[in-house]
């Protein structure tokens, strides 16, 4: 793989996406929501001003778990199933297909990362200026987890688009996956666990965690924020089973990385013998 070609393609993809009004709109909406959450959270509890970093991270968790996968899936499928004429010209260059795929994937990731970081930075700046820097490290780790979540769903989008080059179909399937991972998966896992007994149910819940990147980021963030009590006995069991909080987070991050590497590898293999 020629790194120079990958970087050139990534930079082009980044430039195109930065100029896309939807990327800008996402950055603005995301930023406004984060700042609002940081501010409104304290108002609700009868206090004025901004929340601390830790409280803001906890408030933002669900927002990130809903929005970041949706944006990554949308941008990924639309970009990879884009204009045939531009794809044909690009793939007819002296490149191997993996270089094009990885380059576009990286460029898209950086554009999602930039718009996400924009929101996080504005909120972070305001919190640091008004409340202080307590909990900043947890906030930064939460930002990294959010970016990792975006990368996972972008890779899933690439896989979907590679499996089906038609834009409408790919986009529809990507939306189905968003519903599945964000809304249905937990219900399915809990429903299945309800049909089992004690130890088996716990094992199923534990294993099912690694089948959903959204849950992995949720739990890793809650561990980071010392909020394991929020996910009850199974959460405590998980932390104990994995040998403490650090071990748990490391395992979850490694699993998220596997969710990136494996679909990306499959996408490259699928694309290699495909007609463009």
């Amino acid at each position: 793989m020629e790194i120079r070609a990958v970087v050139d393609i990534a930079f082009q993809e980044l430039t195109i996406n930065i100029r896309n009004k939807w990327t800008t709109l996402f950055a603005v909406v995301f930023g406004v929501l984060i700042v609002s959450m940081a501010y409104v959270g304290m108002q609700v509890e009868g206090f004025g001003g901004m929340q601390s970093f830790s409280r803001t991270s906890a408030s933002m968790l669900n927002l990130v778990l809903y929005i970041v996968p949706l944006v990554a899936l949308t941008m990924g499928t639309l970009s990879f199933t884009g204009d045939k004429g531009s794809m044909e010209l690009l793939f007819s260059q002296p490149l191997v297909r993996g270089e094009v795929l990885v380059g576009k994937w990286l460029g898209l990731f950086f554009s999602i990362a930039l718009s996400t970081l924009g929101g996080f930075s504005i909120a972070g700046g305001l919190i640091a200026a008004t409340v202080g820097t307590a909990g900043l490290v947890q906030y930064l780790l939460f930002v990294i987890l959010s970016l990792l979540l975006g990368m996972v769903f972008l890779t899933i989008a690439v896989l979907v688009a590679t499996l089906n080059r038609r834009q409408a179909k790919s986009f529809g399937f990507a939306l189905f996956l968003w519903f599945f991972f964000v809304l249905f998966y937990d219900l399915l896992a809990l429903g299945a666990a309800a049909m089992l007994r004690g130890e088996q149910a716990n094992t199923l819940l534990f294993v099912s965690l690694f089948g959903n990147p959204v849950d992995m980021v949720r739990i890793a963030t809650l561990i980071l924020l010392d909020s394991t009590e929020m996910f009850g006995a199974s959460g405590a069991a998980l932390v104990r089973f994995l040998g403490g909080e650090l071990g748990s987070i490391l395992l979850l991050v490694c699993s998220l990385i596997a969710w990136i590497v494996i679909p990306l590898g499959i996408s490259i293999r699928i694309l290699r013998p495909q007609d463009i």
Partner: peptide, 13 residues
Amino acid sequence: SYLPQRVIFPERQ
């Protein structure tokens, strides 16, 4: 060097 039948470039470039 190949020129496709319907060549398209990113609109914002």
